[in-house]
Simulated scan of single mutants.
Amino acid sequence: MQEIRHTPRAATSIRALDTHVGIDPHRHDDHQIAYAGSGVLSVTTDAGTWVAPTTRALWIPAGTVHEHRAYGRTDLHSVGLPTRLNPLSLDTPAVIAVGPLLRELILAYTRDPEDEGPERRRLLAVLLDQLRAAPLQPLHLPAPADPRLAAVCALLRADPADSRGLAALGAAAGAGASERTLSRLFRSELGMTFPQWRTQLRLHQALRLLAVGTPVTAVAHRCGWSSASAFIDVFRRAFGHTPGSHPGRLR
């Protein structure tokens, strides 16, 4: 079993991560905001995976065992917050939208973490105000606990482009459950339908591929969309811009 590192204080810092480099499972006694100034960052817990390009940030509550992974050359900006400061009033991980002002506040606050002067305290106050106003984003890919559901999800994780229906996937995975049972498990355990979960998985994979410079047409094919235009449409509705103009994309 992999050892879980306990780092009581969640440091405010900047850390450069090469693509596919991760930070092993660990936990803090503080809350943490994790933001990728470049590239794409994912955070995984027992409850699933959250992914964030440069237009999003990750909220990681105190005590949450989590691991990071970078896709594309990633500058990880971490903001540690004591438990008395919970601007989102959340005790579960989440993805939040990052507009131009919030981005600049995070970059500025992490630039000189040893400064404890009045200007920095004012900067933190504005940062917390912006976090309170930041909308949450549905970029969570929940992880199944039921072994029948886990077997199906594992097939799709291995190949997000797999276009088989739920009945065929269940049979191939040896799940021993009917399509109706698996469909019910998606809703009750993961809080979304099978098509919604598969689309979320494909979007997660698309973000990772775009971050390492994969062409849009290749991303569409490898993630299971019927055409590049279909992929672009889904991506634009999810992120507000086209994959070709994705901020975390390598140029």
Rank of each mutant, 00 (worst) to 15 (best):
Q2V: 12
H6Q: 05
T7L: 00
P8K: 11
R9P: 09
A10S: 15
A11K: 08
A11L: 13
S13H: 07
I14T: 13
A16Y: 13
V21D: 14
V21K: 15
V21M: 13
P25T: 14
H26Y: 03
R27Q: 07
D30N: 15
H31I: 05
H31T: 08
Q32W: 05
A36P: 07
A36V: 10
G37Q: 12
L41S: 11
L41P: 02
S42A: 14
V43S: 04
T44Y: 08
D46A: 15
T49H: 00
A52Q: 12
A52K: 05
A52V: 01
P53Q: 02
T55D: 12
T55W: 01
P61N: 13
A62F: 11
H66I: 01
A70D: 06
Y71G: 00
R73S: 13
T74D: 08
D75K: 04
L76D: 06
H77D: 10
S78N: 12
V79S: 06
V79T: 06
L81N: 01
P82C: 03
P82K: 08
L85G: 02
P93H: 02
P93I: 01
A94H: 04
V95L: 10
V95C: 00
V95K: 07
I96L: 14
G99W: 04
L102W: 02
L102I: 02
L102Y: 02
E104L: 09
I106G: 04
L107R: 09
A108E: 12
D115N: 14
D115W: 09
E116P: 13
E119I: 05
R120N: 12
L127E: 02
L127F: 06
L128Y: 07
D129N: 11
R132M: 10
A133K: 10
A134F: 08
L136Y: 02
Q137R: 14
P138S: 13
L139A: 09
H140L: 06
H140D: 12
P142W: 11
P144D: 08
P144R: 12
A145L: 15
R148N: 07
L149I: 06
A151W: 13
V152Q: 03
C153F: 00
C153Y: 03
R157C: 10
D159Q: 14
D162C: 00
D162I: 08
R164H: 07
A167M: 00
A168Y: 09
L169Y: 02
L169S: 09
A172P: 12
G174S: 01
G174P: 11
A175T: 08
G176Y: 11
E179H: 12
R180P: 00
S183P: 05
R184P: 03
E189K: 08
L190A: 07
M192K: 08
P195N: 04
W197F: 09
T199D: 13
Q200D: 06
L203K: 11
Q205T: 14
Q205W: 11
L207G: 01
L207Q: 15
R208S: 12
R208C: 01
L209T: 09
A211S: 14
V212L: 03
T214A: 13
T214P: 02
T214F: 08
P215Y: 05
V216C: 11
V216R: 00
T217Q: 07
T217S: 06
A220D: 13
C223V: 14
C223H: 00
W225Q: 04
W225T: 09
S226W: 11
S226F: 02
I232G: 12
I232W: 12
F235I: 02
F235T: 05
R236W: 10
R236H: 14
T242C: 09
H246D: 15
P247M: 01
G248D: 00
R249V: 01
